[in-house]
Simulated scan of single mutants.
Amino acid sequence: MLSIFDRYILKKYLGTFILLLLLFIPIGIIVHLAEKIDKILANEVPFPIVAKYFLDFTIYFADLLFPLFLFLSVIWFTSKLANDTEVVAFLSSGVSYYRFLRPYMIGATIVCLVALASGMYFAPTASKGFNEFKYEYLKKGKQDRDQTNVFRQINENDYIYASYFNVKEKSGNNFTLEHFEGNKMTYKIAASRIVYNSADSTYTLFRYTKRKVGEHDDIIESKERLDTVFDFEMEDLTPVDYIAETLNIVELNKFIAREKARGSSYINRYEVVRYKRWSLPVSAYILTVIAVAVSSVKRRGGMGVNLAIGIAIGMVFIFFDKIFGTMAEQSDFSPFIATWFPNFVFAILAVYLLRNAKR
């Protein structure tokens, strides 16, 4: 059963957090709209599509930066409590510091569960709409989604390679398909160009050559053009960079398993997205403890000093999160360690600050 004090702190915790979101998200929307308004008008994007885009942007933006908003909101209202000597009054009544933290932990649990549900299911849908609008209207004509040196294992026996894939035209250059039975290659298909036909889900191969490996002699078959079918789709071969962000947790797990089997070079990028969906919500607890420990002490400089310390710590947390995430995406560094390391470091900091705040 929650006491009057618990309800009071919990109301402040959730209310200030929501208020901060409502204050900063419109600012983000206005800044973003000011940057993109010329392209939106030039492409004559209908208003309902623009409205949906900014709704997706709001969810995407809130999910991405909620740890910082939460951190600042806790520092803000706890500093105010400290300046009004409410913290001192409560602790002077003989209640332990850990009891003082209880409503904060309840609030962190609520935020963690909401962030977990959002990151697993709601934010991916918003991210898909946000990114599709961006590539359709704001990056029109750019080849950001094209890929080079694409290699995939498409099933147990077949491996394909292309030196270049044009996602917009659904075509590739220097295509090869190698079929293995056990450890022995039985045939190899090569083409200077491959084009995917969306109408009937077929492929057209130009300057087609097929070499069947015989026991004594190879059989070579060649044509200038061949229409055929394969056991893959172009989207499976060239997943866009943001694809992992648009999948809910069930779809993402299946997607990563499939991409691992195909030998994708982007596995670490996808793994970072998956692990962050767990690590960021958990950071609500760690950042809450740090924020309370920093701001529950009444300082000579008032709330400004606490906010300055909080902003500095928040920026360092975001820096750690980004730098280790990038390391995992661009190298063989473990995605699990990269995503959880900031939480580990700041958990140690939280314990240290909490022990000092109790004194």
Rank of each mutant, 00 (worst) to 15 (best):
P124H: 01
V240H: 09
G310H: 01
I189Y: 08
G301R: 03
S3R: 10
D38M: 08
F90I: 09
M234S: 02
W278T: 01
F100Q: 12
T246H: 00
T339S: 15
I189N: 07
V31G: 13
G304C: 07
S279P: 07
K210E: 10
E35S: 07
D332A: 12
L247D: 00
K212I: 06
P103H: 07
V297N: 10
L33K: 00
D158M: 11
I18D: 00
M315S: 06
I256D: 01
D231Q: 12
G107C: 06
V50H: 02
A244H: 01
F333E: 03
S163M: 12
F341C: 06
E235A: 12
F206L: 13
Y104I: 05
F336R: 14
F122P: 08
G302M: 07
H216I: 10
Y208W: 15
I75E: 00
A42C: 05
Q330I: 11
Y13E: 06
D200P: 08
M120P: 01
K140G: 04
F333K: 11
K139M: 08
L349V: 09
I106C: 06
G314W: 03
D6I: 04
L205S: 01
I348P: 04
F5C: 07
K36H: 08
E181V: 08
W278A: 04
V305Q: 11
A42I: 08
K184Y: 04
S295T: 00
L237E: 02
N306F: 00
A257T: 12
F90K: 11
S73D: 04
K39Q: 11
T186R: 12
K52N: 09
E132C: 09
Y266C: 02
F90R: 10
P124K: 00
E233N: 11
Y53K: 01
P281V: 02
D63S: 14
S265V: 15
T202L: 07
L19A: 15
V345S: 04
M120G: 06
Y270H: 10
P46I: 02
Y242K: 11
G325A: 10
A162S: 15
K184G: 07
M105S: 11
S79Y: 01
I154V: 15
A126S: 15
V74L: 11
G301Q: 07
I49T: 14
K11R: 13
N131V: 01
V316H: 05
